[in-house]
Design a binder for these strands. Structure first.
Lengths: 359, 359
DNA sequence: CCGGTTTACGGAACCGGTTACATTTCCTAT
DNA sequence: ATAGGAAATGTAACCGGTTCCGTAAACCGG
């Protein structure tokens, strides 16, 4: 294993001047209230039954007077818990991520935890650094949407009894709790609907699958479904890497020209893909749904607004966040039961972009 | 001042079982490497010039062997700095916020800081609690998109020498560094363009202004501009509170019916407003731009995709984030210069939704 | 009235780093 | 050979909480 050079990267080691305006400490409060630090500490952790009524009031008043705020670092150091949770997402600007984040955050707050958010841009190197940084902060739990390239470090965290919960992307080999959309169910439901509507040529557009289980499950189900359905059309799966310029245009063109005259539908693996596809279709002057139907995963705010309304599969993102954080809490509380994978159902939302053939 | 009851809210005070798998400490490393803690500490803070070559190598090896991760809480406690920054946003699911967040995050990471993210839903009570929580964590700086109702607590932070930087919303009375879009310039530029295109009746739709300076500046500029331009139309400003059901429909109807036959444009204060407006217009069967033109602040991913392409004002969100965080860093480094307000220009992006009359 | 229990609180060590202030080692010039 | 200074490293206190353990006082039933 490579030697990780562990030198603190805060550049400002020089001398950040913070002219101590003396923040009050537990000692100050104790002195002022005429009791010992122990008693204040007991008050702070809610052990009121061993504090007399009048002492309690005096402490309360003193704390208010001194504007005392207990130092979480000191507390955390002694208790070996930081009261904060780490969250690593692949792309913070993606509404999918933020909606999960919101779920996580709500549960965190309700239980007195803070949240450290890290954005990796799907870069395994950044991811590694973030994992190490969060480890250094002694986070009490980690929720991660992983690139899949840092199993070694995630494992290290787990060995230190820090609960790790995966969201959106499964990694069965690691044995972590996992919360995802039920991609098989959601894809199946959508496909059943599409066939029922009479589509003859359905194409699935996805980013490179890599280690992203959601993409994998969706395109696999798509494949299998069309095979099982004994569907006459080719089971078109197009993989588009946005880092390669013009790839989307090429692949779309390939599909469009080979499907001339058929009743066709473009199924996008997620909202990002859908928007890019719509952009190209528009440039080509193709009308939706007259010339081609579309549908995608992710029910984002623009879906009902883009005419004629885009059919989508709504993912239970907020609930994924809530569930993930609740798993973390259970683990923090000492639950040692075997890791579970929770699959929450996706919901098909039918709009004008996928009319039936008879219509 | 009310007595703030300061009792730790982490419910799990019971006994979270964390069977110490003995994470290694600086002491372990010191013993293993055959030197003192001091030397390790020096290594960790990059003071290599006072460590011999061979000792350094031995330390490096030992750290790798023991998978040692310095505890930031311990370090932070002694140094009275946490190496983390707090960020409070009004709505984390709004792409405007996440784009700023991304800018902040990039700068944080580059300088070895971690980021604690809090989402207030514009609720002053949640905001207050978050400020106190971040204070308890001894954040080294705060970036906030404030509701404007917790000046007392922000001030308290500032008194403790914790730098506070406002984004998006100005609050001049507080004397904090502030980074915003230049709303006057952006609005002026857009209005100039609209009038040039020949619009006869322009309406501005905004959420309640309250203490949100960006909304205030935009609607004020709108007002003044039409007055100065000696524009014949009424200077329509419609305030819509989404918490009141059906208000948007009513106000839109009022505008639409009173502007029949005029060459008209709907100008939305932000992307959220724009989407809701488009939704209603669509339900009414109004075509863009034939029946009505639209434009808005925020150049979100759907703007080029919604036909015929929505004209927008792109806000320099990422740059706001970067600038805000750089201000924080400067202050951390001891810069005591007077607070500045940085106004970054918005950029008008013209698309099909705002054609000229002659066309 | 007394032993035992409960209630209310305090002393001091400890968590894992940092740092002011030695101390030791080693080199160099005289 | 040695004083003197630089280079390399160590000692121990300290940061602000928590917690184990101890104790004084109040209470209580027999």
């Amino acid at each position: 294993m490579a030697i990780v050079k562990l030198v603190n990267s805060v550049k400002s080691l020089s001398k950040p001047s913070k002219q101590q305006s003396h923040r009050s400490t537990i000692g100050d409060v104790a002195r002022e209230a005429g009791v010992s630090k122990t008693t204040i500490s007991r008050y702070l952790s809610g052990q009121f039954d061993s504090i007399s009524e009048q002492t309690r009031k005096r402490i309360e008043q003193t704390i208010a007077d001194l504007k005392y705020r207990p130092n979480r670092m000191a507390r955390g150091l002694k208790r070996d818990r930081s009261f904060s949770i780490g969250m690593i997402v692949a792309d913070i600007t993606n509404p999918f991520s933020t909606s999960i984040l919101r779920g996580v955050e709500d549960v965190c707050t309700k239980h007195g935890y803070s949240l450290m958010v890290c954005n990796t841009d799907n870069d395994p190197v950044k991811e590694k650094e973030y994992i190490m940084m969060l480890q250094a902060h002694r986070i009490d739990g980690l929720i991660i949407n992983s690139t899949g390239h840092n199993n070694e470090y995630l494992h290290e965290l787990a060995e230190e009894q820090t609960p790790v919960v995966l969201v959106d992307r499964k990694m069965p080999e690691l044995g972590f709790d996992t919360v995802v959309t039920n991609n098989v169910q959601a894809t199946t439901e959508a496909m059943r609907f599409f066939l029922q509507q009479g589509y003859e040529r359905i194409a699935f557009f996805t980013q490179p699958v890599e280690k992203v289980s959601s993409r994998n499950e969706r395109s696999n189900t798509f494949h299998q479904f069309l095979a099982q359905a004994n569907h006459p059309s080719i089971t078109d799966v197009y993989v588009v890497d946005f880092r390669e310029n013009g790839q989307l245009e090429q692949k779309l063109e390939a599909y469009l020209s080979s499907s001339q005259g058929q009743f066709r539908l473009l199924f996008a693996v997620n909202g990002v893909m859908q928007l890019k596809i719509l952009n190209v279709l528009q440039q080509k002057g193709l009308r939706i749904p007259e010339d081609i139907a579309v549908a995608c995963f992710d029910d984002l705010d623009w879906a009902p607004v883009i005419p004629p309304g885009i059919t989508t599969i709504a993912q239970p993102t907020y609930e994924i966040g809530v569930n993930a954080m609740e798993r973390v809490l259970k683990r923090i509380m000492g639950d040692q039961s075997p890791a579970e994978t929770i699959e929450l159902p996706g919901k098909l939302i039918i709009r004008g972009s996928t009319p039936s053939k008879t219509k």
